[in-house]
Amino acid sequence: MTFKTHEQIFDAVADSSITDAVYSRRDVLSRSTMGVAALALTGMPIGLATMTEQALGQAATTTDVTAALTLALRLELLERAFYDMGHASSLGFSAAETDALTVIRAHETAHVALLSAIVTGVTAGTYDFTAGGAFDPANSVTDFFAVAQLLEDTGVRAYKGQLPNLIGSAYLTTAFQLHSVEARHAAEIRMLRGFAPYPPAPDSLTGYADEGYFASQAQIDIAVAVYGPAITINNNSGNPTPSTGEDNKVQGSSYAPLPTGVTTTDATAFDEPLTAAQITTIVALFGA
């Protein structure tokens, strides 16, 4: 049995009608160059003319769009700097780890370039990848991957939380395209660590440590900021309550909104968003 290399598969898929994407790279680039000017000139979200009356009521404002993309850039800059640090370090990564990190670093670099062409005013800072001394990613491969997992899962939660601020903007699709790539990164980092590719819902605060995800209380404290306090993991009973953490089992739509939402049997079947304020708190832990 043989498998084609991913390049061959990717080429094949890219050539097929399957990935007949509406949003080609050229589209994104043209939006990158035109986007800010268009936003500034009209003061209206891009694509407003094509929107329905229903959409108008909830259309994101220019301020919303800029704030959402600025937050994304802030996080991508942090991620890029982290992988640059790993790349420049003498950490003893395995071949598989090096290959995966090379892919992720290239993506984060591309994401920074993409977002930098749309929004301005954010630049890379002097980061603290130890998160106040909780981790030692410059000297420990284990810690490097623990931090990578936290950053990637934070990225997934951040993009998700900003999606409403991009409704009615052409950048909503771009955000979805960035969001799913971050999720792929997060899953791979987790698998390379030997863990489940989905955010954990441990049964107790010590569950994080018991399962080996994080080694100290200081690390768990950072993880709690990312995933939600494990103390709220009360959802294994028959009547779960909504949670803002990754343990949430209650889902809603505009057709069946919370709190009379639908409960699921498995919290990991749905990823959860974080607010801009929560993301700001998390990246501040890393000096961003």
Partner: peptide, 27 residues
């Protein structure tokens, strides 16, 4: 397999690091 490596998890993405967004008719 020659050249095999655990690096295709996000090979769906393009040079800008974006996953495809495909129109429903093509899907």
């Amino acid at each position: 397999t020659a050249g095999a490596s655990r690096n295709s998890f996000a090979a769906s993405a393009d040079a800008e690091g974006l996953d495809p967004a495909t129109v429903t008719s093509s899907v």
